[in-house]
Amino acid sequence: MTDATMTDTTTAPLSARHLTLAHGEHTIIHELDTALPAGQVTAIVGPNGCGKSTLLNGLARIHKPRGGAVLLNGADIHALPAREVARRLALLPQETHAPEGLTVADLVRFGRHPHQRWLQQWSEADQRALEQALAAADVADLADRPLDTLSGGQRQRAWIAMSIAQETPLLLLDEPTSALDLGHQIEVFELIRSLAGQGKTIAMVVHDLASACRYADHLIAMREGRILRAGAPAEVVTTELIEALYGVTCDLMHDPASGSPVLINLRRVAR
């Protein structure tokens, strides 16, 4: 049994119960139980191919489960209408692309789709949400710039602004910093932290364990479609876990400022 069950699945905003996800014949996620703690940033980590992105897509209702269920506020997410889910849960996939010339404001307007009815015009509430999202992601100055003229970090903040405009209590991000350099990574992670500070429940797939430890409140460590450990980074990250996840040995230090674990002296385990 993993630590994930410490969070009650009936009160968590988003949880998985005996969730099994498969691509065709190939089972990726095996009867997994987990829950996202409300108002916190959860990072899903693990080696390549461990199923972390698949799990995120499953939680976001993109990937239909082979068995078990994803519960959104306790209700089966696949029993809810797609629009209803989109008002409560926003997803930012790993690879995004936009038509040439699309401006930041154009993009962020898409975030209002779940709130708009057929033929309904742009409302005052939509406009307010747009402006707030642009401000929250610090892209208000870039509103009229085409996405393809922005830096990687600015572009990613614009995409996050679209998710903010969706005004959902839940935000799921798949490797939000994967194509960014260090400075832009920090820019995006700090934005994600500030969103959690405003009460959003956030889950993100993160490639880099060090960043996950630094920016997440809750860690889900996965291998081969199962959760090895889950909990606060300072508690769950041990040299044993890192060896089990990545097949490397290392020493652990703790960041004097944040107390989050820092990996040093990494070596591959001779097997």
Binding site: R83, H113, P114
Partner: peptide
Amino acid sequence: RPLASLALGERVAMGLG
């Protein structure tokens, strides 16, 4: 409107409901 959102990718469109 849904068709326009497909330009952002299938997953984004699904995420928008």
